[in-house]
Design a protein around this nucleic acid. Sequence first.
DNA 1: CCCTGATTCGC
DNA 2: GCGAATCAGG
Length: 193
Amino acid sequence: MSWTDERIDSLKRLWGDGLSASQIASQLGGVSRNAVIGKVHRLKLESRIKPPVETLKREALLEGAAMQAVAAAEVAPPAPPPLPRLVVSTPAPAAPAPLPRFVAPAIEMPEPDGSALGAVAEVQASAGVVEAAPATRNLTLIQLSERTCKWPLGDPLSDEFRFCGNHSRDASPYCAYHARLAFQPASERRRVR
DNA sequence: CCCTGATTCGC
DNA sequence: GCGAATCAGG
């Protein structure tokens, strides 16, 4: 895969939105996060809106950082003009986190609706499985990685839609618990559906 | 360990 | 120019 003008535009947009290099790489496809970082440097589009802290706290800081930037701009009007990207970015603090612009990947997922889950519970009960559902991390799509559980939670069309996000071993699509629900042996799947 | 960006350097 | 390897860090 090469850096076409189109892909470069996407890179600039995603980087400007504050997505991490790995997130950008996964969305562009065909490139590693190193490739993204390398390209970012070559394009000289460094400097995120967040000057200090590192990435993990990015999402928590987005709202606050934007408000601080606005406040700073108001307090010091005659001072040297803020960076262009700062001016462009501050007026839109409405969205706390960038929502995915892309269609959810066509991953084979079990239906999250009540009937299926009820059936699962029924199977578990009949199979003598006594296992409480673990707490979920409730990650958004862009927060998923190869090592996070992709078990869907809630309505995919809702803003509240999340994924389990617990650790998945060996790049399995699901955590240990949800893998058991998703890949039930035929012997345990009697009467489901 | 998981993740982040920064840098180097052979290609 | 590209990006894997590596580094430094949360």
